[in-house]
Design a protein around this nucleic acid. Structure first.
Lengths: 139, 139
DNA sequence: GATATACTGGCATGCATATGCCAGCATCAA
DNA sequence: TTGATGCTGGCATATGCATGCCAGTATATC
């Protein structure tokens, strides 16, 4: 993982690491991690479609996944900010924090939009121009 | 405010699996996977900040990561649609497809927005109402 | 053709983590 | 109190995958 630094490349290794540190913060790797597992997507979809807070045992029953597995995924999703968790008595009620989820994904869009200003997505949202010219990209 | 645990769940297991299948397509798990690794984020940031197509060896030197490792990550990012790849002679030129990336993330927003209509993000984008009422969530 | 360059693909290794089981704790009802 | 319920956390196992090495292939140059 260690090679001599080069002057040929526009972005120095140090600069790249700084950029990555920023990306790690702004793109929120934990959110991607949380959404990159199929079981967690199943759990999330269950809660979103349910539309009300559910207990871990309800979700486990709905998803047909072992309780302790679902429980751990629920805690992870809550830690990533995708779910809200509220303990009442001996039961923890989990609910999809759709508002937060949308907002955080919007922040991702904004972060990437800063890289590529003035680009328009197919759905009509405005982002920016491609960061690489068509001639350079070869398209 | 208490949910009887014995009550049948609104979303049946079969329905949940169907929903998940849809989410797997629309939320594009592969994109999350591609963005959930720190080395791949480093590679992506290098290419984004560079602003022009780079060869695998350039990226490897820039990121101080072993060539074959970078090469595999570049292929994975390209397979996820994050990078464009064009072979010219014996060199493959990779470039960040910022436009596509923004567009695909916009699709994610749209997908989630359908779950939670009429919600506004802190940056002023409009998404929807929370899918769970404050009373049910206990806020 | 000979050689150097650039990439590809396979394999082994180590690490992270998803899963499943289970003991234990906290809470509630009788 | 006692028993039942619901969740927590630890452990072992299995799996996926990131990494690194290396042999092989494709291409360009001499």
């Amino acid at each position: 993982m260690h090679m001599p630094a080069s002057t040929a490349h526009p972005a120095s290794p140090g600069a790249a690491r700084q950029v990555t540190a920023a990306i790690d913060k702004r793109l929120d790797q934990r959110l991607f991690k949380a959404l990159s597992d199929s079981t967690r997507l199943l759990v999330l979809s269950c809660l979103v479609k349910c539309g009300r807070p559910c207990s871990a045992s309800e979700v486990a029953e709905c998803c047909e996944v072992e309780f302790s597995v679902v429980n751990k995924h629920l805690k992870m999703l809550a830690a990533a900010g995708v779910l809200s968790a509220e303990k009442r008595g001996r039961t923890v009620w989990y609910a999809a924090r759709c508002g937060d989820l949308c907002a955080r994904l919007a922040l991702l869009i904004d972060a990437i939009a800063e890289w590529c200003p003035n680009l328009t997505s197919p759905r009509g949202r405005r982002f920016g121009r491609p960061c690489c010219s068509p001639a350079l990209r070869g398209d």
